[in-house]
Design a protein around this nucleic acid. Sequence first.
DNA 1: TTCTAAGTAAACATGT
DNA 2: TACATGTTTACTTAGA
Length: 642
Amino acid sequence: MMVESASETIRTTPSNQNGVSSLSSQSDGGGGREGGSNGDTNGEISPVDLLHLQQQQALQAARQFLLQQASGLNSPGSNEVKQSPVQVPVSMAMMSPQMITPQQMQQILSPPQLQALLQQQQALMLQQKTWGHYLTCSKQLAFQQQLIQMQQLQQQHILNLQRQGLVPLQPTAAMQSLQQAMCPSDLQQLWKEVSGVPSSEEALKQAEGLDLSTNSSNSTSAFPKAASAHIPLHSLPNGQSHTPKRDSHEEHAGSHPLYGHGECKWPGCEALCEDMGQFIKHLNNEHALDDRSTAQCRVQMQVVQQLEIQLAKESERLQAMMTHLHMRPSEPKPFNQPLNLASSGSLLKRDSDAYPEGLPHPPTSAATPITPLRQGPSVISSSSLHTHSHSHTHAVGPIRRRNSDKYCTPIASELAQNCEFYKNADVRPPFTYASLIRHAILESPDRQLTLNEIYNWFTRKFAYFRRNTATWKNAVRHNLSLHKCFVRVENVKGAVWTVDEVEYQKRRPPKMTGSPTLVKNMISGLGFGSLNASYQAALAESSLSLLNSPPLVTPPSAASLNMLHVGHDDVSSTVEQVNSNGSCSPTLSPQQYSHPVHVKEEPTELEEDSRPVSLLAGVTHSLPLPSDERDLEEDLPTEELE
DNA sequence: TTCTAAGTAAACATGT
DNA sequence: TACATGTTTACTTAGA
């Protein structure tokens, strides 16, 4: 019986390798693995070569430009004199960030700068990888916002300087005329080219390279070190030195983007300023339109642009990766090869229109993948893939449990986003049977299903469960009977299965990404101090999930508890979002619409008043009382109840 | 290495 | 009797 599955279980290696390696590769040179379009082209001029050529040309242009500036401004002079190099090449002066190619930017920035940028980006990507795919998009969005804020900040300062007369009006007119059509970064680029031109060798060094380690010819100058000290690239990505977005006139109302916590937030300054007036004075004195400030601004802008470019590239790579993983038209066995794929925004459609069972359909295309992967990919389940390739003894290709637990997968959202995929692809869902059963039950309108309905749900939702029915059905029954969280209820329709939320939460202590004691303390603060920590945490989650149901929410408790919430595979935390699609009702407890006759009888010896859970349960949702008693009796150590 | 949870298989009981 | 449903046990496996 087991032997026949051996051939099926070793099927995921190609996709696995592809997916995992792609996800983990940050120095892939633009995703050469993604479709191989950027691969090596031996013997002929590839796009990469052309890009290199363009980079060289851009480098030459940039160096000439900078040398031109340096030579034209070598003599000390006033700002007016410094404006003379306004006659920069129009192509450079008018070059918006969008017009500067990444390669040109890379050439404009010195190797140390690029290195610093790369480190930042790698750190960012590491963060993204660490937090997983799920956070990537939000992080990118946040980062993009940060970039925009910084651009606005810089522009604001520029405008401020203009208002204060520190910036000549000559370019301002042009800027104003362009202001309507150009983004802040465009304006800044224009401004920096027009007005803030480095006038000396140090400016050149600043622009070409802040670190002398690679610039031996200038290594004797002491300035670059100072300049590099004034350009703390690290201040950008974390955004610590930038305040939230402000209106361009807001600095007059008591705040300034470059001023915060009594410090000047100019890169590398950190001068203490007691009040805004002092800060303004400091800003005008120390960060006036001079070579240093201009160079700093220039470098900062380039940092921003570089990061933007990198962000765009990484986003594009991500898109390509996810698209690639979703669409494998050349797969010889598209449905017999379990593809554990990333989520796709295109798969968000609710599947009330299930395909005929047993008829696999081609996976839907993934045009706009938006669901990021988690640290432990919930869909690209390494565990799933792993077990598929290692489990030779199970006919169904066991997913090997705990995926959802381990990766804290919100099964509801996962299924909601990938329902089409799972429906069509012969992929074992990376969830435990218990999670799936629970999801099926909670997804139902009445939050109760007969065994046969559970079967149907499995086969309807997952192509994987359209075969080996005996195996997984047995597993379903086994889980239903085994886990106390599943409560058999007899109503007029016969026996149905419901979910005991508390019990379900209890069977797995929730994973707290933060301090586990936080939950305990907070719950203790809520008056549940008599419970043990794990049970408190479980209750917290259970309550959280149910507190999400509007009719049952007590705002303060919900708010405070929501702070504790960490996602796992619980449907309760995400079922509401499924409910938003109208597929199930979130609030009713089984006992609210059925008259339970609990078959699973277990000894109950505890007094009801010794169970603080009833407090919470009573507030949040109606619990199955008999099972509740049973559960509490079983899981709460008696010594802790005494 | 040990423990635990999950998955699988199977035996058995019960009801239709 | 066959089948569905439900329970229980045993075993294997993976992960902590």
